[in-house]
């Protein structure tokens, strides 16, 4: 998001929210990190940065690109994912002027905090409700990624309703934002599902969201061997 979409008060409020979120993520990441997975967080952020450079067409002269919040949360955990997304957004803004400086707080809030929080919440709920096998995790990740994109677009509309610099009919903006991003979210879902499936097929132990499933699977094997 460029500068100037939101007024100063709203931009400042999202800036404070982003600082609070990143501070919480710094604390949470300490608990989340393991020796084996520490290098993967940097790789995950690098992949998200690279993937965000590739816009894919969604029709009617519009494109979308990966946000990557849900993908990062599945791969490295939600707190580390917030830090990944924040660094990517800051580098894009400061080096490439891709996203305004006064909009940094809003961009981190929407693509870091909201995207990761909604994506991870969906993963946790779906994993608990639906998953019997680790093989379904890419599907869960894809659905969560779609939801995270749609939620971020709805959150943008909410912020615009609070502090947009041009008064607009918000129902129209909401329908347009959510409509386009529901389409873009399909691309996000496919990319997220494929990446998660790729890592799961080679090193499932490195996928943060798979840890409880791997632990459960190990327990099942031990139970079977003794009966």
């Amino acid at each position: 998001m460029p500068d100037g979409f939101l007024d100063a008060v709203t931009s400042t409020a999202t800036g404070v929210l982003a600082i609070g979120g990143v501070a919480a993520a710094l604390r949470g990441t300490k608990r989340e990190l393991s020796e084996r997975t520490t290098p993967l967080v940097g790789l995950c952020a690098t992949f998200v940065f690279a993937a965000q450079m590739v816009n894919f067409p969604v029709g009617a002269g519009t494109s979308g690109h990966l946000i990557g919040g849900a993908l990062a949360a599945v791969l490295v955990g939600p707190w580390s994912a917030i830090l990944c997304m924040s660094v990517v957004i800051i580098v894009q803004s400061l080096l490439f002027a891709d996203g305004g400086i006064t909009a940094l707080g809003t961009n981190i809030t929407l693509m870091g905090l909201v995207s990761v929080a909604v994506g991870w919440a969906c993963v946790v709920v779906l994993r608990r409700a639906l998953l019997r096998s680790i093989r379904w995790l890419p599907v869960v990740a894809g659905i969560s990624a779609w939801a995270s994109v749609v939620a971020s677009s709805a959150a943008f509309t909410g912020l615009y309703a609070l502090g947009g610099t041009v008064p607009l009919p918000m129902s129209k903006v909401l329908v347009a934002m959510v409509g386009w991003h529901a389409l873009i979210g399909l691309g996000e879902a496919v990319i997220t599902g494929l990446v998660v499936a790729s890592v799961l097929s080679t090193r499932p132990d490195l996928v943060y969201a798979a840890r409880p499933l791997i632990a459960a699977r190990t327990l099942e094997i031990r139970t079977g061997a003794t009966s």
Partner: peptide, 30 residues
């Protein structure tokens, strides 16, 4: 081979007349 079409936010902003401020000078271009 990436699409050069505007992304979802840019499309909505253009269609609805959202105003953005001039962006700062990039240190690097993509």
């Amino acid at each position: 081979f990436a699409s050069k079409a505007p992304d979802g936010l840019t499309r909505v902003a253009t269609d609805n007349g959202m105003a953005s401020a001039p962006s700062h000078e990039p240190l690097l271009s993509y």
